[in-house]
Design a binder for these strands. Structure first.
Lengths: 123, 123
DNA sequence: CAGATATTTCAGTTGACACTTACGTAAGTA
DNA sequence: TACTTACGTAAGTGTCAACTGAAATATCTG
């Protein structure tokens, strides 16, 4: 489905407001997990730790250890890649037009289709 | 939490690959729901209809009725707004720095904190 | 009006996800 | 060594999102 690697996890990570806020906190300043967590009075430190894991897996933040602490900071490169994706993906005209043509043909083929809503699993 | 209206629903809508694909299909071409659905052999028309509803509620597509059909097309303005948000949000320096300062102070206050992981629900 | 077509909507299932509490672990400190 | 600090991880819970199959709605057509 032409899902550019990483974009999916990045968008899912950003779809959560709390994670956007975290990312904003560490956008320029490197911060330990506790400081980040203390910014959110409504949820536990554990919840923030899990959010940080999601952000880290999406490569939106990087982690650095310093004694017992773990310092987080935003990885601007991944955000740049995401923005580039948002700029390019929909405007990739050639691929889109070809796909639409195929879809049209397939729709035309389905004159005799089942009454039910089943998808055409045409093996 | 300074969640700019609409950004949340737009990001959630885009976090789903199938919806991104739909959006790409109707990016320049206006298409009826059936044609869009026939592009996805793996899922039912019903599922696509629901995806279209999500995209419509996020204002990423607009709907136009033509007889029994409903024609969809991407609303480029909303994508533009989202891109603008992604460009501005993290770089809004003043607000961010103030928040970090507050977080630091609060973390400092918590010298005597409970043993358990409870969040500080300070009345 | 009866039927066909295009599409949404409803009800129910399954899995993902944000969250909490409790526990584990690694690194400093008395 | 024992204690504390700073975290992650495990297990369980409630809610939400994606999906299917069936029924409902709206429009055209004979």
């Amino acid at each position: 489905m032409l899902t550019i690697r990483g974009v999916d996890s990045a968008l899912k990570a950003l779809a959560e407001p709390r994670r956007r806020e975290i990312l904003r906190l560490v956008w320029t300043t490197e911060l330990p997990a506790t400081t980040i967590a203390s910014h959110f009075a409504e949820v536990t430190r554990s919840a923030i730790s899990q959010h940080l894991a999601v952000l880290r897996e999406a490569r939106l933040v990087s982690e650095r250890r310093d004694g017992t602490r773990r310092l987080y900071r935003a990885d601007h490169r991944e955000m740049a890649r995401l923005r580039e994706f948002l700029d390019r993906y929909w405007t990739d005209g050639l691929l889109r037009l070809r796909d639409v043509a195929e879809a049209g043909e397939r729709a035309h083929d389905q004159q005799d289709r089942p009454q039910t809503d089943q998808p055409d699993k045409e093996h």
